[in-house]
Amino acid sequence: MKKSIVWMASYPKSGNTWTRIFLANYIANASQPIPINVAHRFAMGDSIAKTYRMVAGRPIDTDDIDLTLSLRPAVLRGIVGNNADINLVKTHNIRAVARGVPLIPEEFTRSAIYIVRNPLDMVLSYARHYGMTPEEAVYTVSHVDNANPPSPETVAQFMGSWSDHVRSWTGPSPYPVLVLRYEDLLADPKGNFAKVLEHLGVPVEAERLDRAIQFASFKELSMQEAEQGFVEKSAESERFFAKGKSDQWKTDLEPRLVKRMQAAHRKVMKQFGYLK
């Protein structure tokens, strides 16, 4: 069994989807953009209920969290069972243990790509995505027990607070972890997406890189979503690709909420250059 999983990891609303769609376009190397609703074929999620039912061999109740956690090792073993060198797997789970089950087990892991975003911008996008007020989102992402509840389509996802999540993925690791800031991807997509390819061991071809970046541009993604919808959009939000910019918090997040976020996440924000 190969350690073939490369985790595409991030806290929700931090640039994970953009990166995966870039990779889908680069790998496909097509003359037209890959439809956003098939991009998941290039990087499957680790919380899709269908795969847990397949492993169980029967219908399961996704609300039974102990059951789905007990199935998780078999789900991941099934992913690496194809004997491929690399299996890209999207996750929003914290790198920790939940109810005795390692969420990101080393035995299946080749490496990881972790994307971190200024939490002051992330929390605004988080609020829109989950149908919360900014104040509710600030509380939620600062709570140590934050998790996405199960649904018929997905099993529970354990995130913890933004700070705990970032620390878990960027701290000491037994395997390589490429850490990228969302803001740096925006400022220099060529240089930083090239790092993603190099991390995966994929040759960097300049023309192909430019084309994949263009096909994964915010303009292209928002246009596709307007035309065909997007399977990853939550029922609580109007659209998935809203603005995609940095520093929105300066005009859109109330000063009292800025202070609350900074107080809750000061150390990690300072570590990643989000707080002077």
Score class of each variant (00 low, 15 high):
66 D>T: 06
66 D>Y: 02
66 D>L: 08
68 T>G: 00
68 T>M: 00
68 T>W: 08
69 L>E: 00
71 L>D: 04
71 L>E: 00
73 P>N: 00
74 A>E: 13
74 A>V: 07
75 V>F: 02
76 L>T: 09
76 L>M: 11
77 R>A: 13
78 G>H: 03
79 I>F: 15
80 V>R: 08
80 V>Q: 06
81 G>A: 00
82 N>V: 12
82 N>I: 05
83 N>L: 15
84 A>K: 01
84 A>D: 15
85 D>S: 14
85 D>W: 11
85 D>Q: 13
85 D>C: 11
86 I>V: 15
87 N>D: 12
87 N>F: 11
88 L>T: 12
88 L>I: 11
90 K>F: 06
90 K>H: 04
92 H>M: 06
93 N>W: 01
95 R>V: 12
96 A>M: 08
98 A>G: 10
99 R>D: 00
99 R>S: 01
100 G>Q: 02
103 L>H: 04
104 I>F: 05
104 I>N: 05
107 E>R: 10
109 T>Q: 04
111 S>I: 03
111 S>W: 03
112 A>K: 03
112 A>Q: 04
113 I>L: 05
113 I>M: 09
114 Y>A: 07
114 Y>Q: 02
115 I>D: 06
115 I>P: 14
115 I>H: 05
115 I>Y: 05
117 R>K: 02
121 D>F: 07
122 M>G: 15
122 M>T: 14
123 V>L: 07
123 V>K: 08
123 V>H: 07
124 L>R: 09
128 R>N: 15
128 R>F: 14
129 H>V: 10
129 H>Q: 14
130 Y>D: 13
131 G>I: 14
131 G>M: 11
131 G>R: 08
131 G>H: 07
132 M>A: 12
132 M>Q: 12
132 M>C: 07
133 T>N: 13
135 E>W: 06
136 E>P: 14
137 A>V: 08
137 A>R: 02
137 A>P: 04
140 T>N: 14
141 V>F: 02
142 S>I: 06
145 D>C: 09
147 A>Y: 12
148 N>K: 08
149 P>W: 11
153 E>D: 14
153 E>F: 13
154 T>V: 13
154 T>Q: 14
157 Q>L: 13
157 Q>G: 12
158 F>G: 06
159 M>D: 01
160 G>C: 07
160 G>L: 04
160 G>E: 08
160 G>Y: 05
162 W>K: 00
163 S>R: 01
165 H>F: 07
167 R>S: 04
167 R>W: 09
169 W>N: 02
169 W>P: 06
170 T>Y: 06
170 T>C: 09
170 T>V: 03
170 T>K: 03
171 G>A: 02
